[in-house]
């Protein structure tokens, strides 16, 4: 389809499509760039920033300094990092161990376990029963509830199983004959071979944990333990300025008079999406490549 000479009409048609798609990209980017611009503008020039401005007016880091000086905000970033790092490590560990065990052809009870996996996939527990379980096992007001309620994503488990199934069984058997236990086989053979899959799933789990706010909002009551997304929700979505700003006198009177809440909110949003923007090139590299080469499984 490439080498064929295109008629002037086709060229016009393609040019129109190109223009339209660039417009789509602009629609995606402008609202985001606008907030970044607002957050970086000099406070006295904030009134000049309209909803369509994409470059900062003047330049100032005052909003970010204010956030960095806020103990609750800084704390919430640490909480989010904790949930993301520990959560993703647990996800990868538990799912790769399970995927390995479930792909051993000789495992007695394999069918039963697979039925269990499907049950987990199709039956969604109600919110209240889950809440009561978390309460009963003593995880209320703990970030562990936020981490553990999604220790395994069954869809990702199945992706990992597909990956392990492709490793030639002879490799595993040869190692077992040499006296290696299953633990060694998993560590020395399977995990190194599955590194691309683990990296992709790790990115997805990581983004999931970083973006998590809802479980934290129902299980965690102490604002000191809030993850960043929950602070963001309080501040930007619910317009609760007291939880964040009221905690710790971090503004001098002068500074407070110059500040714009809209700009401070914009900065909070920017900080909340920053880690995702940082890993985004990796996501594009691993995931979209995988999709283009193989089947799509979400």
């Amino acid at each position: 389809m490439r080498g064929a000479p295109s008629s002037p009409r086709d060229r016009l048609y393609r040019a129109a499509i190109g223009v339209f798609l660039v417009l789509v990209s602009i629609v995606v980017l402008v609202p985001i760039l606008n907030l970044a611009a607002l957050s970086l503008s000099a406070p006295e020039r904030v009134p000049e920033v309209t909803g369509l401005t994409v470059l900062p007016k003047g330049f100032s880091l005052i909003n970010y300094r204010v956030l960095a000086a806020n103990p609750l905000f800084v704390r919430s970033i640490l909480n989010s990092v904790f949930v993301t790092v520990v959560g993703t490590a647990i996800n990868l560990l538990v799912s790769s161990m399970a995927a390995f065990a479930l792909t051993r052809p000789s495992l007695p009870g394999k069918r039963l376990f697979m039925v269990l996996v499907i049950v987990v996939m199709v039956l969604e527990p109600g919110l209240v029963p889950e809440y009561l379980v978390v309460k009963r096992i003593g995880l209320m007001n703990s970030l562990w509830a936020v981490i553990l309620y999604k220790a395994v994503n069954v869809y990702y488990l199945i992706i990992l199983m597909r990956f392990f199934e492709e490793v030639p069984q002879s490799l595993v058997e040869a190692a077992v004959v040499d006296g290696a236990g299953y633990g060694t086989v998993l560590r020395r053979i399977m995990l190194p071979l599955a590194t691309p899959a683990l990296a992709t799933l790790g990115l997805f789990y990581g983004v999931y944990h970083w973006n998590e706010y809802f479980r934290a909002s129902i299980y965690v009551s102490d604002p000191e333990k809030y993850p960043l997304q929950l602070i963001l929700r309080q501040f930007v979505v619910l317009d609760d300025t007291t939880t964040l700003i009221g905690s710790g006198a971090m503004l001098s009177y002068d500074e407070a008079a110059r500040m714009s809440y809209a700009a401070l909110k914009a900065s909070t949003i920017v900080v909340a999406m920053l880690p995702v923007l940082i890993v985004y090139p990796l996501i594009l590299k691993y995931y979209t490549k995988g999709v283009m080469e193989g089947g799509v499984k979400e």
Binding site: N211, L230, R233, V236, V237, I269
Partner: peptide, 9 residues
């Protein structure tokens, strides 16, 4: 890849 909190914001 953005959270719904961010998107809502």
């Amino acid at each position: 890849f953005l959270s719904w909190v961010v998107i809502a914001g």
